[in-house]
């Protein structure tokens, strides 16, 4: 563990990213304490500039809602969508990739065809269609993002499993007569974890961007304040009040940046070999 931290902290960008990410996480956790009033509440005069009224340091939007409150509460949605959808995608990806890689043969062939099939359809376009079909909600957004983002994980895990399968410790387990599923769960999958973790970090970042893009196209969940929603809602105000879209945009940028930096740090720390794969 100390070795891990040592390698991680050698990358100064990663440390910076981690600090930023921790800050974002703290804000997300404490959101209801920092801004107990719902971010939807119209509590100020509409379209106050930042710093114009110190009660609303970042200003208000067209209906008089506090931008700072929106940003703070939006943190939760972005992180939630990012992590939950990635978790789902990773579960599916590890499952498909693990089974395909371990069993090989026709199972591998069928599963890889399916994976290829999902990769053939443009990701964002597919997510847009899925969300439109199942009507926009947090659940449908998470599902859609997960559905379009698992294939890379599956391919990665499959490749790892393929190479691990031939290693001595797996062969030893096979010789000892351990059941297949146990070998898969106990021996192989844990060893595929490092690259998966790195990939997953990047997927969280991508998922946050995808959620923002969906909201921008008008396909966000209308009951939760998210950064994507804020940019989408501020789009028509771009000329009148550019800060309305600049600030959530910067929030997304910083968060995604932080996650990417941490991802790189993890990649360095977990497996120096990985770095060269270019994710």
């Amino acid at each position: 563990m100390t070795g891990f931290w040592k390698r991680f902290s050698r990358n100064s960008g990663a440390v910076l990213g981690l600090a930023l990410l921790v800050l974002v996480l703290v804000v997300a956790l404490l959101a209801p304490l920092i801004y107990p009033v719902s971010p939807w509440q119209m509590i100020g005069a509409p379209l106050l500039d930042p710093l114009e009224d110190m009660a609303f340091p970042l200003g208000t939007d067209m209906l008089g809602r506090d931008i700072a409150a929106g940003l703070v509460h939006g943190t939760r949605v972005s992180l939630l969508v990012g992590t939950v959808s990635t978790l789902c995608a990773v579960l599916v990806g590890v499952g498909v990739g693990g089974v395909a890689g371990y069993f090989g043969g026709w199972i591998d062939d069928v599963l890889m065809r399916i994976t290829e099939f999902f990769q053939t359809i443009p990701q964002l376009a597919m997510a847009v269609v899925l969300v439109a079909i199942f009507t926009p909600s947090l659940a449908s957004i998470v599902t859609a993002i997960a559905l379009v983002s698992w294939p890379p994980v599956a391919r990665l895990v499959r490749a790892e499993v393929l190479s691990l399968r031939e290693r001595e410790f797996v062969e030893a387990a096979t010789v000892l007569g351990r059941p297949t599923y146990l070998i898969l769960f106990d021996e192989i999958l844990p060893n595929t974890l490092p690259p998966v973790i790195v990939t997953a970090t990047l997927m969280i970042a991508t998922a946050i961007l995808t959620e923002a893009a969906l909201s921008f196209l008008g396909l966000g969940d209308r009951n939760f304040m998210s950064w994507g929603f804020m940019i989408g809602a501020a789009r028509s105000m771009l000329r009148e009040a550019p800060w309305l879209s600049v600030m959530p945009g910067v929030a997304i940028l910083l968060t995604v940046l932080a996650i990417n930096l941490v991802g790189e740090g993890l990649s360095d720390a977990l497996n120096p070999r990985l770095r060269q794969r270019g994710e």
Binding site: G13, A205, L209, A212, A213, F216, I231, S245, G249, I252, L253, L254, V256, L257, N260, L261
Partner: peptide
């Protein structure tokens, strides 16, 4: 590269 990678396309 990192910043470009983290910026929402439409934004």
């Amino acid at each position: 590269a990192l910043i470009c990678y983290a910026t929402p396309l439409f934004w």
